[in-house]
C-alpha cells in the first residue's frame, strides 16, 4: 500500500518522510530510503502525478551549463579571467570566449579589470572547474548600476512565468534589469525608479513562497511609482 503523507506546497525539512511505497518516484530535493521517499532539504513540496519534488526555500548556487550568471573579476592569468560567481569554485573566462578579438600577450586588464561585474554564460562544469563564455547576445560587462544579492532559489520567481514578473517590473519602473541565475541582480535607471525596483526585488526574495505574489508586487510598484511622480510635481 502506498500513501502520501504531505499535501501540495507543504513546507518540509530534511529527513521528513513524504510518502511510503513504490507507487511514488523521487525527484529533485528528495531521495528513496527503503520504502520511503524522504525530503533532502528544506523546501516546498510539489506533487506531479507520481513524482514528488521539493523546491528549496534557501540554497547556495550550484553551477549548471547554460546558466546566465553575473560574476565579479577576482583574478587574471595570461589568457583568462577568473570570476567569483557565488559558489565554492571560481569560474574561468578564457580570452577566446570573449566577443572582442584579443591578441595574445596583451594586458588583459585593458578589457576587464579587477572588480568588474560581467554577465556570462556557463558552458561547462567539470569537477569544480567552471568555464564561461561571452559569445552570445546580451553577455557583456555591466556598467554603473545597482547590484542586489538574492537567494538563488528565488530567481525563478523574480523572472516569473515566461518572464512575466521581470517584464512587469522593467515596464513599470523603466529600469534595465539583468538577473543572474546565481542570485545577483543588476539594475540601472533613474535613481528613484531604481530604488522602487530594488525594493520590489527584495520583497520577492523575502516573500516568494507566499500566495498572490505578482498582484502584491504590482500593487506595490503602482503605489510607489505614483508617489514618485507626485513628488516630482
Amino acid at each position: 500500500m502506498s500513501n502520501l503523507k504531505v499535501k501540495e506546497k507543504d513546507i518540509v525539512v530534511p529527513g521528513e518522510v513524504l510518502a511510503n511505497g513504490m507507487d511514488f518516484l523521487p525527484s529533485q530535493g528528495t531521495f528513496r530510503d527503503g520504502d520511503d521517499i524522504v525530503a533532502n532539504m528544506i523546501g516546498l513540496t510539489f506533487i506531479d502525478g507520481r513524482v514528488l519534488k521539493v523546491i528549496p526555500l534557501n540554497a547556495k548556487y550550484i553551477p549548471r551549463p547554460g546558466d546566465m550568471v553575473i560574476g565579479k573579476v577576482t583574478e587574471m592569468s595570461f589568457s583568462s579571467w577568473f570570476l567569483d560567481i557565488g559558489c565554492a569554485n571560481r569560474a574561468m573566462l578564457s580570452v577566446r570566449e570573449t566577443q572582442e578579438f584579443i591578441e595574445s600577450g596583451v594586458d588583459l586588464s585593458r578589457y576587464y579589470r579587477f572588480g568588474d561585474y560581467i554577465v556570462a554564460k556557463i558552458i561547462k562544469v567539470t569537477r569544480g572547474n567552471i568555464d564561461l563564455t561571452m559569445k552570445e547576445q546580451g553577455l557583456r560587462r555591466l556598467g554603473v548600476g545597482k547590484l542586489i544579492n538574492i537567494n538563488t532559489s528565488k530567481v525563478p520567481r523574480i523572472i516569473g512565468k515566461q518572464g512575466s514578473m521581470i517584464s512587469m517590473i522593467k515596464e513599470k519602473t523603466n529600469c534595465r534589469i539583468v538577473v543572474g541565475k546565481n542570485g545577483l541582480v543588476w539594475l540601472q535607471g533613474e535613481p528613484a525608479d531604481e530604488r522602487v525596483a530594488a525594493e520590489a526585488i527584495t520583497m520577492i526574495n523575502e516573500d516568494a513562497h507566499k500566495d498572490g505574489l505578482t498582484e502584491r508586487i504590482e500593487e506595490f510598484i503602482n503605489k510607489k511609482c505614483k508617489g514618485g511622480k507626485d513628488e516630482k510635481k
Binding site: 525539512v13 530534511p14 530535493g29 523546501g43 534557501n58 547556495k60
Partner: peptide, 11 residues
C-alpha cells in the same frame, strides 16, 4: 545546516 539549504538525509 538545514536552514542553509544544504542537502541532508536527516536532522
Amino acid at each position: 545546516l538545514a536552514d542553509a539549504g544544504i542537502p541532508m538525509t536527516d536532522i
